[in-house]
Structure formats: C-alpha cells, structure tokens
Computed example of a mutant assay.
Amino acid sequence: MKNKLKLLTGIFLLTISLHSCSKETQETTDDAKALEKELAQDHNGVLKLESATYIFQKTGETTKFLEDRRDFNFKFVNEISYQTTGTNKHAIEGLTITNPETGEHMIFSNFEELKNGFLSFDVALSSGQTLSSVSYKPGNETASTNKWHGEPLLPEPSNLIGAMIEVSQQELVNDCRAAMEVCAATNGVPTVALNNGKGWFTGIESCSLECHN
C-alpha cells in the first residue's frame, strides 16, 4: 500500500512539474512571437540596449520590451528640443546632440556597422552615465541597402532622445507606472505619458497613465 502511495505521489508531482515546464515554455514562445510581430510592423526605428528593445511606433509612442517580454508603452507629451552637430555616417564620430534649453547633451562614439542592418555605438550622457554597445536601426520605410553611406544617421532623433531619457529616469518612470496592473487586469494596453519639461536628465515633471484597447 505504501509503495502504491509513493508511486501515485511521484506520478502526481511529475505531472505538476511537466505542466509547469510546458506553461513556462509556452509563455516564452508567446513573448518571442509578440516581439517578432512588433518588429515586423511599420515603425520609425529600433533601439537595443542590453536586455531592452525600444520600438519607435508611427503613433509617436515607444514600445519597450525586456528580453522578449513586452514591458510597456510610453510617450512624451512635451516637445523634445535638440540641436545636432552632424547627420551623416562619415562625420558622426563624436556626434553631439544638445538640449538648447539646458545645455544637457549626449555624445556618440565608436560607431560600427553590423551585418544585421544595425549600427552599434556608445553614448555618453551629460548626467555622467555611459551606455555601451547601443544598437540602432532605422524604420522599415527608411531602411536602405546603402548601409548609412551618405544618409542621415538619425533623420529625427527625438525618439532616441526619449529612450535615453527613459533609461536615465527609470526610477521616476517606475513610479508613474504604478497603475499599470489595474489597466492590464482589464485587458487594456497601458501607455505612460511623460512630461519632462525642458530638461532631459533632471527628472520627470509629471506623468499620467492612459489605458486603451
């Protein structure tokens, strides 16, 4: 009797284990498909930084993935002002994008063309933060077989600036995301609307959560 009980218990635990593994595998597969689907859509460019992927949407929003998992959408409700020192591939080593309102800036260096159509570079922020091996690829419609030669690196860099602001202000952005779970529970898609005022890296002045289908 005891042997039968042990056998049944073992089978039960094995079944639970297999079910758990199967569920985790399915969730991982679904997450990967979600990222692939987003990347296949028309967009204004993709930025990869460590485990994060930022997809710049045509709507003006940015969709952020961590690994293959969708994290959240965000957008800036204020206009991001900038000035740049150069735009083409042959003159961008040391390219500097500056906030004309505050003097904050970001300096790009160590550019390298990758075989997958991405361009890799490092970014030094005036806040003191340095981001290494950042990868950027232009939107589907602006992609070219010329691999950047004579073409603008950042035809409209405000999306990239916005991503850099999000990276540098993640603690404050996380505070703005407090109500996201409520939105997700209603099967809505949350978008965090950020207002950073005139500054880039000095903080988020205000934020709100938009929940849409």
Rank of each mutant, 00 (worst) to 15 (best):
E27P: 04
L49G: 13
G60V: 00
Q83H: 03
D31L: 03
F56P: 03
S20G: 03
S17K: 09
E79T: 02
T28R: 12
L39P: 09
L5R: 11
T84K: 07
D71T: 07
D68C: 02
L14C: 13
E67H: 04
S81T: 00
I16T: 14
D68F: 04
E38Y: 03
L14R: 07
R70E: 13
T87V: 02
A34H: 06
E79C: 00
A40S: 11
F74E: 03
I80D: 03
E24L: 14
F76V: 05
F72N: 10
I16C: 15
T9D: 07
F65M: 02
D42I: 04
T63K: 13
L47W: 04
I16P: 12
N88L: 14
F76M: 00
I11C: 08
I80H: 03
R69E: 08
A52Y: 15
L8R: 12
K75C: 03
E38H: 06
T29K: 13
F72W: 01
T62I: 03
K48M: 15
L66Q: 03
T63L: 10
S17G: 10
G60I: 00
T59M: 04
E36N: 08
L14N: 06
I80M: 07
L5H: 13
N78G: 08
E79P: 00
T59K: 07
K37Y: 11
S51A: 11
L35Y: 11
E79A: 02
D31K: 07
Y54L: 14
K37E: 13
E79I: 04
T28G: 12
